Amino acid sequence: MAHGDITHIDIPVSDLAKASEFYSGLFGWKIAEIEGFEGYPMWSAPNGISGGGLAPRGDGFTQPRSYVEVDSIDDTVAKAEAAGATVAMAKAPITDASWWAVIVDPDGNHIGLFEGSV
């Protein structure tokens, strides 16, 4: 993936098992927990490219969130803030080689940022 590609979509859910059954039955998504990410079932679409996770619904996470791959979260956040965005979640590690953050665009949309490799 390259800078600007959408890499992942998280869907907030109240019941992980029920949501897994719903989305796999509706769209044919393969949904499974991955070692190291227990409690966060990941989904992949039949095209083998699209994917994301089913994450617990909570305060500040009530709508699906797309994640965009960036070359540098730090640079992208600075550029976003200069253009009127705010930061909802500062850069945090996912693995030893990947990070994520969440910005809020001037219209109030939450956009996830991803840097690295999983």
Rank of each mutant, 00 (worst) to 15 (best):
M1W: 05
M1P: 02
H3N: 15
H3D: 15
I6N: 00
H8A: 01
I9N: 04
I11M: 05
I11L: 10
P12Q: 04
P12R: 04
S14D: 14
L16E: 03
L16Y: 01
L16M: 09
A17F: 03
A19I: 02
S20E: 10
F22L: 15
F22G: 05
Y23A: 04
Y23I: 05
S24G: 07
S24C: 01
L26Y: 11
F27Y: 15
G28C: 08
W29D: 02
W29V: 01
W29K: 08
K30V: 10
I31Q: 06
A32C: 04
E33R: 06
I34Q: 13
E35M: 13
E35F: 11
E35L: 14
G36W: 02
F37P: 00
Y40M: 10
Y40Q: 13
M42T: 04
N47D: 15
G48H: 13
G51E: 04
G52M: 03
G52N: 03
G52P: 02
G53F: 00
G53T: 02
G53V: 00
L54D: 01
R57Q: 15
R57W: 07
G60D: 13
F61S: 01
T62N: 13
Q63T: 14
P64L: 09
P64Q: 13
R65F: 08
R65E: 06
S66N: 11
V68Q: 01
V68C: 06
E69P: 01
V70P: 00
V70A: 00
D71F: 07
S72T: 05
S72A: 10
D74N: 12
D74W: 03
V77S: 03
A78Y: 06
K79T: 10
A80M: 02
A80N: 02
A82D: 12
A82F: 10
A83M: 12
A83W: 03
G84W: 03
T86H: 02
A88Y: 00
M89C: 12
M89P: 07
M89H: 15
A90E: 09
A90I: 06
A90R: 05
A92F: 14
I94R: 05
T95Q: 13
W99S: 05
W99N: 04
W100H: 11
V102D: 01
I103A: 02
I103L: 09
V104Q: 11
D105H: 07
P106F: 06
D107R: 06
D107H: 09
N109G: 11
I111H: 01
L113D: 00
F114V: 04
G116Q: 02
V118L: 15
V118G: 11
V118Y: 13
V118M: 14
